[in-house]
Design a protein around this nucleic acid. Structure first.
Length: 329
DNA sequence: TCTGGGGTCCTAGGACCC
DNA sequence: TCTGGGGTCCTAGGACCC
């Protein structure tokens, strides 16, 4: 047992504040540097090496963390302790919140723990996969584990089938990865009433693109492409994505791409509940080489953007924004 | 226990290139 | 010159997690 999965919940109830979460992550790194954040309210820890230093076994370390989180942040946590991330997660979810639950490494104990669980309790099996598995009579983790891997691969596809078979046997080779860089960054705008007006949707997209660009530049990142998701009144959704000619964090490019994707959908009388933008394929801005153009307008737009970013840094995010977004925010 | 917003990963088909 | 198989990229969509 070297992996801890911690799920935090404020004693007062409600959601965890971002600053509190940051503080909790710092608290976790007091115990081990190998902490993987799972925003907004969870984390994985590899405590190999920490047990000796602190003179506690992993369960003891988990208890220590709980006490500190309560004392310093009035935040309780549920901790699972096991041999790998998947088992640690499942141990944490195996009972009421606010406890430390340990699953020993003993293969028979692990098998017994898994066998009695319903299919949907297996990490990586959600409602849809559970339905599929159950339709083949594979309604418990024990039965999934007993099925030949080839059968699961036929039902679920090669990668998913293999992974589910492994997990049903308690196997999870994924390491705890500290400092994992985000792959994408997105935001959604939900309309208060189902929106039929394309102009209003464009204003929402402008606000989203503006905010996304600011976040990208603030974090020193560029994106390779943009995805637009449109959610409709009936719960369905359409996604369209486009790759930029070069990685960028510039709001005008994001906005123009968002508009182009939106226009290409050719929505006529669609009842739109929400629009969302996601910047994909993030990378460090230092790696991006901007094609030098002699386009004066482009050059000016980038200088304006830099000035806006400086104003925001000084006066707050609400200080400056495109005029057309004012009635959407 | 549920909700929801912000994420991740996978699949599959088509285009393109070698 | 034609054929063809195998990468890789792009795009759309689905599923899952916290």
């Amino acid at each position: 047992m070297t992996v801890l999965y911690a799920h935090f919940h404020p004693v007062s109830g409600g959601a965890l504040a971002e600053e509190t979460y940051d503080g909790l992550l710092a608290l976790l790194t007091e115990v081990t540097p190998v902490v993987q954040a799972l925003p907004p309210d969870a984390a994985l820890l590899d405590v190999r090496g920490a047990t000796r230093y602190f003179g506690h076994d992993p369960a003891g370390l988990a208890t220590l963390l709980r006490v500190r989180a309560l004392a310093r942040y009035e935040t309780d946590c549920t901790v699972g302790v096991a041999a790998n991330p998947m088992l640690a997660r499942m141990a944490a979810h195996d009972g009421p919140p606010g406890a430390v639950r340990t699953l020993p490494d003993d293969p028979e104990r692990v098998a017994a723990f898994l066998a009695r669980k319903p299919a949907a309790a297996l990490y990586g099996v959600g409602p849809a996969t559970a339905r599929t598995l159950c339709s083949y009579g594979l309604d418990s983790v024990g039965r999934i584990a007993a099925a030949p891997p080839a059968v699961l691969q036929r039902i679920l596809g090669a990668a998913q089938g293999r992974r589910i078979w492994e997990r049903a046997h308690g196997i999870d080779p994924t390491p705890v990865t500290p400092d994992a860089r985000a792959r994408s960054m997105g935001a959604e705008h939900r309309f208060t009433t189902d929106e039929l007006d394309a102009a209003y949707r464009r204003r929402a997209l402008l606000a989203l693109a503006d905010g996304l660009g600011a976040r990208l530049r603030e974090s020193g990142q560029v994106a390779r492409g943009l995805t637009l998701t449109v959610r409709y009144a009936d719960g369905s959704a359409t996604t369209r994505s486009r790759t930029f000619t070069e990685p960028t964090a510039h709001t005008p490019v994001l906005t123009a791409t968002a508009y182009a994707l939106h226009n290409a959908l050719g929505l006529q009388r669609a009842r739109v509940r929400a629009v969302a933008l996601r910047a994909e394929g993030l990378g460090g801005a230092e790696l991006a080489v901007h094609q030098l153009t002699f386009d004066e307008a482009d050059d000016k737009a980038r200088r304006v953007e830099a000035a806006v970013d400086r104003a925001r840094a000084r006066f707050g995010n609400g200080a400056v924004g495109p005029a057309a977004t004012l009635d959407v925010a």
